[in-house]
Design a protein around this nucleic acid. Structure first.
Lengths: 189, 189
DNA sequence: CGAGGAATTGATTTCCATCAATGACGGTGG
DNA sequence: CCACCGTCATTGATGGAAATCAATTCCTCG
């Protein structure tokens, strides 16, 4: 699943699996704008013909599409739909603003802690978590691209987290060992 | 003009002057999320009771407020309004995503160049610019807080821009000396 | 004239990037 | 079954970008 920057009449919903939104810079670097989990709607595709980012799958995924035109037609009859879409978009803006603050002001440790906390919340909404072990199908490269660091440095920080007994990410599972400390590091305000 | 995080029934529009949206972190640092120019609507206030950021004036300003409830009532009768609001929100998301990429991947020079280009565009929309001189009522502290740098480092970069004949920001005026170079530095993709 | 905020500049430190080498897997094909 | 790869993670050594600390100058304004 690789969408580019071309116009499309579809609105996308992720039904199962993980994906991520990203932009590719000319110098070869990329910035991951956000991860997509089951149930996530590509809200931009609700209002725009073409996306300003690309999308890629992290795992095997199932995607559902709807015709934007049809949604718009229904929205004209049922305001409720439009409101929810707008609400959804406002929520996205809030998340984006948080991310801006994180990237602008947080250190490497804090950024990664923040990412973990954010993903933990998303995962918790969708499934029951036992023993503070969260399935996390990310390579260190993805973490790096999401928080603006190099994979090498991400590796070092994860080692630090293990040494300090904060969290352990291995084999696609994030085990949270000291939630308090993780929150102290990664929480805005 | 300092709004906090409290609920309010109003939607805000900036009629004249400059302002900025920001979040204050517990460690005393702050991140400026964006600058507000005449005509800008606080789109978040369209959909949310309370803002997740604060707002402050940079210059003398005039603000107009409308009741959210009234706008919602009108929107129920005239879809057009709601669509424009949603469009507006989508545009905001796009800008935020750009900012995320800038903060995640750009160097200090590139970040500041990007900020200048962004503000130049906003200013150009609102008034005629002569001799590539843009009124810019920012302290270096504001630039620093907007792009995630220290004021000291911003000062150094601005010196570099002057030496290299790229741009000169002094006395509230940004003079662009080499637009090409500025774009080369500050343009995504 | 004096005072205080803003900008500049230098010296030093810290954090993260970069470069490079190594080991651990997992798949593939002989 | 095992030698061979490619990808990923780890670790060390080094370099560079930006932060921090500190001193000085420049304004503006009382």
């Amino acid at each position: 699943m690789v969408l580019a920057n071309q116009p499309s009449p579809d609105v996308y919903v992720l039904c199962s699996g993980w994906g991520f939104r990203f932009v590719q810079l000319p110098n070869g670097r990329r910035q991951i704008l956000g991860f997509l989990l089951p149930g996530d709607v590509l809200t931009t595709s609700l209002f725009r013909e073409s996306l300003h980012f690309s999308v890629k799958a992290l795992t095997a995924i199932q995607v559902s599409t709807m015709k934007r035109a049809e949604i718009h037609a229904r929205a004209a009859l049922n305001l409720q739909i439009l409101w929810e879409a707008a609400e959804c978009c406002a929520a996205e803006t809030l998340a984006a603003d948080n991310m801006i603050a994180v990237l602008g002001q947080f250190s490497a440790e804090e950024r990664i802690a923040h990412l973990f906390l954010h993903l933990m919340k998303e995962i918790s909404i969708r499934s029951v978590i036992r023993d503070a072990r969260y399935p996390l199908p990310l390579r260190q490269q993805h973490i790096a691209d999401a928080v603006g660091l190099t994979p090498v440095h991400v590796s070092r920080i994860l080692s630090v987290f293990r040494e300090r007994g904060i969290a352990d990410l291995s084999n696609g599972v994030l085990e949270v060992l000291n939630l308090r400390e993780l929150q102290r590091l990664g929480t805005l305000n």
